[in-house]
């Protein structure tokens, strides 16, 4: 198991390096920050001065070398826009996103596993059809549309929930509800399918031939096997949320890392972009590691 983790760490490190190189150079292609941050009538001397201060006058390769050496000391540079360390800015936003992702995924997993299992026990029943219908709608409905309809319905027409921002518990309801829908639909389908497979499996037949009662057949023999593919999908979906729910965060003015990235790109705040990418990439790496560990705990065949 430790060798598996080691291999994972090495391959993740390599992808992270490639990512840094790509993002560093690609973001330099978006244009000159001096043109954006200084007034239109700023003199060429002022612009030069601005570039000099932020090290933008050096050749790109020199800038890159500086960036890498700083990175080794966990110095991501300062944010152009906020004049604060970029890492600090990113971690602020990331905390918001992390909370949003964790709460959403916990709710999604619980709901999808419960409803998906029920559907699998009663294949073809009204409940099963309802679950399949919900999951199809959930997996295919565009989230920006649901977000806007949600705002119109619950915030504007009914006035029950705030339209955007943060502050109270109520501010979380709409973003979570919108983010909930798609992963719920996907995971529900996987749970249902994998439960049906496990219930029809040979080892369940053996358990019944042993005279094991219904409840342990389901909760001991079936569930653990059925969870294996489900965990993979939960991990994928959680990773997508950690990456920042760009559309939802933007619509609801939620100060998460997705919104931060979009803002930083638009404002050529290179250091923040890079820091945000590094932080989310690291989070996704840890997330995948957790999934691998959970998988190995559930399935002894992976351990050896």
């Amino acid at each position: 198991m430790s060798s598996m983790l080691g291999k994972r760490a090495v391959s993740s490190f390599i992808s992270l390096m490639v990512l840094i190189v790509l993002v560093f150079f690609l973001s330099r292609l978006t244009g000159d920050p001096a043109a954006l941050y200084l007034p239109v009538d700023a003199s060429e001397a002022m612009r030069d001065n601005f570039r000099e201060i932020h090290g933008l006058n050096d050749p790109v390769l020199v800038q890159f070398t500086h960036y890498i050496t700083d990175l080794v000391c966990f110095d991501f540079g300062d944010s152009l826009r906020k004049a604060r360390p970029a890492l600090e800015v990113v971690l602020d936003s990331f905390t918001w996103t992390l909370q949003l992702a964790l709460i959403t995924m916990a709710l999604v997993s619980a709901a999808a596993i419960a409803l998906g299992s029920l559907a699998a026990f009663h294949v073809g029943s009204w409940l099963d059809r309802l679950a399949s219908g919900l999951s199809l709608i959930g997996a295919s409905a565009p989230d920006f549309w649901i977000a806007i309809v949600g705002i119109v319905l619950f915030s504007v027409t009914l006035g029950w929930l705030p339209t955007s921002g943060t502050g109270t518990v109520w501010h979380w309801v709409l973003p979570i509800a919108v983010l909930f829908i798609r992963p719920f639909g996907l995971i529900l389908q996987v749970v249902r399918g994998s439960m049906i497979t496990a219930l029809g499996s040979a080892y369940v037949k053996t358990a019944r031939a042993k005279g094991v009662r219904n409840r342990p057949v389901i909760f001991v023999h079936t569930l653990r096997n059925a969870m294996l593919p489900v965990i993979t999908v939960i991990g994928d979906q959680a990773a997508a949320l950690l990456n920042g729910a760009v559309v939802v965060e933007t619509i609801f003015g939620f100060p998460g890392v997705g919104k931060l990235m979009i803002d930083s790109i638009l404002q050529r705040d290179f250091n923040v972009i890079l820091a945000a990418i590094m932080v989310t990439a690291l989070a996704i790496f840890l997330m995948n590691l957790l999934i691998d560990i959970a998988y190995a705990l559930l399935d002894p065949r992976i351990r050896t």
Partner: peptide, 15 residues
């Protein structure tokens, strides 16, 4: 009691 043809699939892999 009963035993089956393919014992690998008839034993629960995770216990």
């Amino acid at each position: 009691a009963m035993i089956f043809q393919d014992p690998l699939s008839h034993l629960n892999p995770v216990y």
